[in-house]
Write a protein that binds this DNA or RNA. Structure first.
Lengths: 238, 238
DNA sequence: ACCGATGTAGACCAAAAGATTAACAAACGG
DNA sequence: CCGTTTGTTAATCTTTTGGTCTACATCGGT
């Protein structure tokens, strides 16, 4: 059955003419591919994609006029089911990460052997994701590092903040403040007098070392007060 | 040289005793591994990790008492350079994603053939990331889907918000408001009178359909006003 | 039984915020 | 050239907010 499958229609975009020609030559010898267009210009490439709606685009990342990431983004925004295989001379983790984030279905290096490249395009044409093991490792290193940093930053914010000084009641009041509710509204929701709300709010200001509600709300947001609330809810559920 | 390398010290944590015993048996035949401990309890496993500080932990994901993700998190928080290889019977994309996010150095399936498993542990012991191609594909699908959804949500927020109705000057004022600055302060920073600031703020309220500064700030934050500012800065730079 | 923390509340005052109306100049678009 | 948008300012007024001080009830721990 499989040998009767339609040829995968491919467009090549690579500002290096020699490499472009080389890949075109290579693919022309494979009967499973039909290179419908090839260009050294990213802008022109995007137009060709619009016109031909190919199955696969082999997209160089390092182009002068337009960055390959932008090109990927624009093609993805067309909403076609064209699969993009990113191509680069370098194994830059950040570039790989961002290309995949934008929806690239794979990432290959120019240094890869021809059979591997063919294989990669085939995989992608068949709707799979292709990533060589070396890049997978790079990707995950970067992926984990970025999450670790995010976590450390959050941790730091949690540790050195005054939110933990608040009493339960004050937390309730702050919660309502972060919803943009006035004294009167808070008083009604908590069934207490407006004066009491004011007292609480004043205490909150002192504890958070701010001088008005807007700053208090900003402080709460910047220091993960909202996240904390969600966590507490989750804890109670489980 | 390589054959003189120290054995990798491994701890196995798997609530299925049969599988645990099987893997232990398998690894005992490999001279490159030294299984220093094995347990069916996640809690006990964590204590064993603290005690032995192994090179690699093979961690089952589906355990009754404690979720494998929590166990990974706790071990990672110890700050050792113990590498965790996650192990599961199922190829659940969300689980894979979260395990890697928490710092797992690889993910293997219980259905994998013995030589593959050996290879995976070796890779991880050598500081590399190991992920079988099938799971790589699953991972990236999930990864891209989650970013796509995020983007769509942002897009939606961008489209149906009133922030784009603001004039440049009003944006400047709102920017300062989101920093918790008073009328007087804004007036000083923009070299205009306090009255003018009030006029701008009033216009902002009407355009954003809110009735006080706190709500305006919350609206701005929830609708990506701060992100937009960053984007504009980036545009100017490049 | 006392003390401290918490939650409640009132009075009073000052400052800031917000609403409304009116006005004028500059820039921009048709 | 004229109308609209934008940015500016003033005067006035009401509402809300924030600060301070005092007071009382409750609860938990020493």
């Amino acid at each position: 059955m499989r040998q009767f499958k339609k040829q995968a229609r491919v467009i090549l975009i690579d500002d290096n003419y020699d490499h472009l020609a080389g890949v075109r030559e290579l693919l022309s010898m494979e009967r499973s591919f039909d290179v419908v267009a090839a260009t050294t210009s990213a802008n022109q490439g995007i137009n060709l994609v619009k016109k031909h709606k190919p199955d696969v685009v082999l997209m160089d990342m390092n182009m002068p006029e337009m960055n390959g990431l932008q090109a990927i983004q624009e093609i993805e925004e067309l909403g076609l089911d064209t699969k993009i295989l990113a191509l680069s001379a370098y194994d830059d983790a950040d570039l790989i990460f961002r290309a995949m984030k934008l929806g690239a279905k794979g990432y290959v290096l120019k240094t890869m052997a021809a059979p591997q490249l063919i294989g990669a395009i085939e995989e992608v044409a068949n709707g799979k994701v292709y990533m060589p093991p070396i890049l997978t490792a790079r990707f995950f290193d970067y992926f984990q590092k970025s999450f670790k940093e995010e976590k450390i930053a959050q941790q730091k914010a949690q540790d050195s903040n005054y939110l933990s000084d608040l009493t339960p009641r004050e937390e309730e009041v702050l919660d309502l403040l972060t919803q943009g509710i006035t004294y009167k509204g808070v008083a009604q929701q908590l069934f207490i007098s407006e004066t009491t709300v004011k007292t609480h709010v004043n205490n909150i200001f002192q504890k958070l070392q701010v001088s008005d509600r807007t700053q208090a709300v900003l402080y709460a947001i910047n220091n993960g007060f909202l996240n904390r609330k969600k966590l507490k809810k989750m804890m109670n559920k489980e």
